[in-house]
Design a binder for these strands. Structure first.
Length: 230
DNA sequence: ACCGCAGGTATCC
DNA sequence: GGATACATGCGGT
């Protein structure tokens, strides 16, 4: 039978002091689960259509300031309205599911209206049009027509659709970096240059530990949250 | 029962 | 640049 399959308990929060060794250990423990999750993201870029990419973007509108689970439930609730629901329909679907139903419905409706006008919602083609990784994300963040994506959520979106090399600097990851004394404060970087600096500092950590950059994010996040989600 | 916290961002000053 | 609005369910105690 499967005698060689090692039973692994659920991912658990790490309560000890964060050290490089503890990170290597957590990476070793969770490597398979993390690689599997990353391959799911890669598959989105591999065979997801524009509707799928749009759905992933909306998921990221929903995760700002609320739990990943709430984001997942919210995307289920609005799925029927993703393509052409009115703002009130989206808000109503989010009511009782997301904590900011009106504000987030506004993001979805406004961003979709812009993207329809700008690129006929051909998100893949639009994202492929950038030669430079950083310019791609900069566009998502700076485009006034897209509501709901700052550097953190734009990176989250790009990672979730399978693109590599974007750090998702949320409060948990920042707390890890602060505990390691890699950054002074866990305060979120509030400018482009600060975000890029911390992202480079995270890159240094991945080079020192030889842990893949995109795996590192999930290692650190799971150490703080005990979960490996989206 | 109660309390802290959700993988933040837009908008206004 | 810093404060505020968004406006709620979940999980630990």
């Amino acid at each position: 039978m499967n005698a060689d399959v090692e039973f692994r308990g659920p991912v658990e929060k790490v309560k000890d002091t964060l050290t490089i060794d503890r990170i290597l250990e957590a990476h070793e423990e969770r490597r398979d689960e993390i690689k599997q999750r990353l391959s799911e993201f890669e598959n989105v870029w591999k065979d997801g259509d524009d509707d799928r990419l749009w759905e992933e973007m909306v998921f990221c509108f929903f995760t700002g300031g609320c739990s990943a689970k709430m984001g997942l439930r919210s995307i289920e609730a609005v799925r029927p309205f993703l393509g052409d629901g009115t703002q009130p329909e989206i808000a109503s679907a989010l009511s009782g599911v997301h904590r900011y139903p009106n504000a987030r419905a506004r993001y979805v409706y406004a961003s979709r209206s812009f993207l329809k006008e700008h690129c006929n919602l051909e998100i893949r083609k639009k994202l492929e049009s950038f030669d430079c990784h950083l310019e791609r994300r900069d566009w998502l963040v700076r485009e006034k027509g897209i509501k709901g994506l700052g550097y953190k959520e734009a990176s989250h979106f790009l990672r979730n659709i399978g693109l590599k090399g974007y750090a998702i600097l949320d409060k948990h990851v920042l707390k890890c970096l602060a505990e390691l004394k890699i950054i002074d404060s866990p305060k979120p970087p509030n400018t482009r240059s600060r975000y890029l600096r911390v992202e480079d500092q995270l890159r240094d950590l991945t080079e020192r530990t030889k842990i893949d950059f995109d795996e590192m994010d999930l290692v650190l996040w799971s150490m703080k949250t005990g979960q490996i989600l989206k």
